[in-house]
Design a protein around this nucleic acid. Structure first.
Lengths: 149, 149
DNA sequence: CTGAGTGCAAACTTTTTGCAGCATG
DNA sequence: CATGCTGCAAAAAGTTTGCACTCAG
């Protein structure tokens, strides 16, 4: 895909920081990244993109609906590509693995609950936490730490 | 209810800061409060309770399952009384009003989705955002700001 | 060329921690 | 009266902003 064009179509100049950040997400190696992680990955090869710019770019890409910002339960925001379809998250509290899913029954029921309470639903965020099959089989032992560099 | 006893039953000494913080939540004037709001309310009458202590107390009360910590979508944690039953939140993005609800169909379906993905579900947080009946009827106009002092 | 975008440093916000003194049990 | 708890101040952690300089269109 043509990243500069994608940016321009959203009304953003195709500058180096924006192209590189979006590229990182499109590569798909890491689906979910914090600002820090993006900054870290950008600087694996020499670069003078500042952390402040990373924050600015992430914010702009989120406003342009190219990325989605998630807060999960921590104090740190996590970003991911907006791939059209909405989805929710199921996170393994042992290994940090994150499954994405979209369940129609859930979505419909949420609409219904909101309607019953007199709300016009605009969006929602469902995060579920548990233990994945892999971690459940391993005797609850030392799970590898995530999101650390 | 006997607040000091409640605290001691949870293995916490019944100190002034803890009693006062818990009291605030039990009064029920504000069901959801940030650390700042708690600090602010405590200091409406003279008090030398420090903000750091407020954070410590909130953390301890949450660990004791007397309070529940919610992150919602902001960077600021919000606390509320743990009144036994789990519930989710429906928040009006216009006026800030927050409805609590618990829908069995949703809970069951979530369990099912997790199981299908091989996860043992431990907990979940569902936050829905929309416009409440009240705000929808008023021409989308200037809604009062919330959570500011 | 020119305004939008950037890097840097500094400010800000929210939360955590170290430590000497205090108060609960 | 001993240890757990507190206030204060300072540090962390995450994010935002001001400003002079740069670059995409």
């Amino acid at each position: 895909m043509d990243i500069p064009k994608e940016l321009r179509d959203s009304g953003l100049k195709a500058t180096l920081p924006r192209v590189r950040v979006l590229q990182l997400f499109l590569e798909g190696k890491h689906k979910h990244m914090t600002a820090d992680e993006v900054y870290f990955l950008l600087h694996k090869e020499p670069s003078d993109i500042g952390l402040a710019t990373v924050y600015r770019v992430l914010m702009q890409l989120a406003q342009a609906h190219i990325l989605v910002r998630n807060q999960f339960e921590s104090t740190t925001a996590v970003f991911e590509l907006n791939q059209g379809g909405h989805h929710d998250h199921l996170i393994c509290t042992a290994c940090g693995q994150m499954e994405e899913f979209c369940d129609n029954a859930l979505e419909l029921r949420q609409e219904e609950v909101a309607r019953k309470l007199g709300f016009a639903l605009r969006e929602h965020a469902l995060s579920m936490y548990g233990t994945c099959a892999n971690c459940a089989s391993q005797d609850g032992g030392a799970a590898r730490k995530i999101r650390k560099h």
